[in-house]
């Protein structure tokens, strides 16, 4: 009996979600009187996750696993869960974890809840709170199986340090042959992704045309933020599809979401509901976004954004 987390890494470094998973698992383990095991694949400093309350790290080193494969990774996690006798397995909501989780659920014969936003509200029966209807509501879902698989929503629990001493145990895996291979990865490495970002700067049709996105990118750069957009903006090809957020696009769960020239249609708001703080900049005081925002500026983006950039630069130079 243990709780297993799949602690994701990027270029060998644990991603923030790995620490969030550890924080969550530690809290859950305390109520269940059990321990937390982290599975780390090709991590350069596997022990460092002990800061968030992990008791044991199963360390897998294997060059075949240097490129992500959902088939292989699901297989490895399943081997780890079986060997560790895990009753609860937790993964993140990254694109890779969403890819492997349903495969893993079937392998473990586990009941699976995705988009989990809080600790279980009850252990027997096992009830978890998850978002449904794309953030328009929450569902309390009962999981009925010996092994349970949870996918935790990003930023739902936060990072909580609980320094402990973790033993690092080498874990040997046997890999099956697979019929699927990655032939190319196309990823901007110098940009913050929407999935990782603490701050997202997003713009809509109010920006009038793709040539005006320089102020959005500059604002994002000053804040170390990712850029995003409304659906029509990506439909018209002003911005790439990967930036489209909303009910039919990506969900955003950042700490700060700045919406510029976006009206705040229900489909847009559904995707950003779980962002903590929302700022809207819009010429129209009647724009529905003002009802969903924490802070608002009624004004023209082409005046407000450049001025905000200047003021933020001053602020950053004084606060760093």
């Amino acid at each position: 009996m243990s709780i297993l987390i799949y602690a994701e890494t990027q270029d060998g470094q644990y991603s923030k979600s790995a620490f969030e998973l550890a924080s969550y698992a530690h809290a859950l383990a305390s109520t269940l009187n059990t321990s937390v095991t982290a599975l780390a694949i090709n991590a350069s400093d596997p022990k460092s996750i002990e800061r968030y309350g992990v008791n044991k790290v199963l360390e897998v080193k294997n060059t075949v696993l240097s490129t992500f494969s959902a088939q292989l990774y699901a297989n490895v996690i399943s081997q780890a869960a079986k060997s560790d006798g895990s009753s609860i397995v937790i993964v993140s909501s990254s694109a890779d974890s969403k890819f492997l989780a349903p495969l893993l659920a079937v392998k473990l014969e586990a009941a699976f809840a995705s988009n989990v936003v809080a600790l279980p509200t009850s252990i027997a029966p096992f009830l978890v709170k998850r978002t449904v209807f794309t953030n328009k509501a929450f569902g309390i879902t009962e999981l009925n199986s010996d092994v349970k698989l949870l996918a935790l929503s990003k930023n739902a629990f936060g990072l909580i340090e609980n320094p402990s001493i973790a033993s690092v145990v080498a874990f040997d895996v046997t890999l099956p042959s697979i019929t699927q291979s990655v032939t190319g990865i196309d990823k901007a490495t110098d940009k913050v992704t929407i999935a990782d970002a603490e701050i997202v700067v997003s713009a809509g049709r109010g920006l009038k045309g793709p040539e005006n996105w320089n102020i959005i990118e500059e604002l994002a750069e000053v804040l170390g933020a990712a850029t995003a957009c409304s659906k029509p903006v990506s439909d018209m090809g002003w911005r790439p599809h990967g930036e489209h957020v909303g009910q039919t696009g990506k969900p955003v769960a950042s700490n700060l979401y700045i919406a510029i020239g976006i009206s705040g249609a229900i489909q847009h708001l559904a995707g950003i509901n779980s962002s903590k703080v929302k700022v809207v900049i819009n010429t129209d005081p009647e724009a529905p976004f003002f009802k969903a925002a924490d802070y608002g500026v009624v004004g023209d983006a082409f005046e407000v954004v450049p001025e905000l950039i200047e003021k933020l630069k001053v602020f950053k130079s004084q606060n760093s």
Binding site: A95, T179, Q180, V182, D186, A188, K191
Partner: peptide, 14 residues
């Protein structure tokens, strides 16, 4: 092709 966080990946399969 599949979308990954921050980009896309090309896969060959059957």
């Amino acid at each position: 092709e599949r979308e990954i966080d921050g980009g896309k990946e090309t896969l060959t399969t059957k």
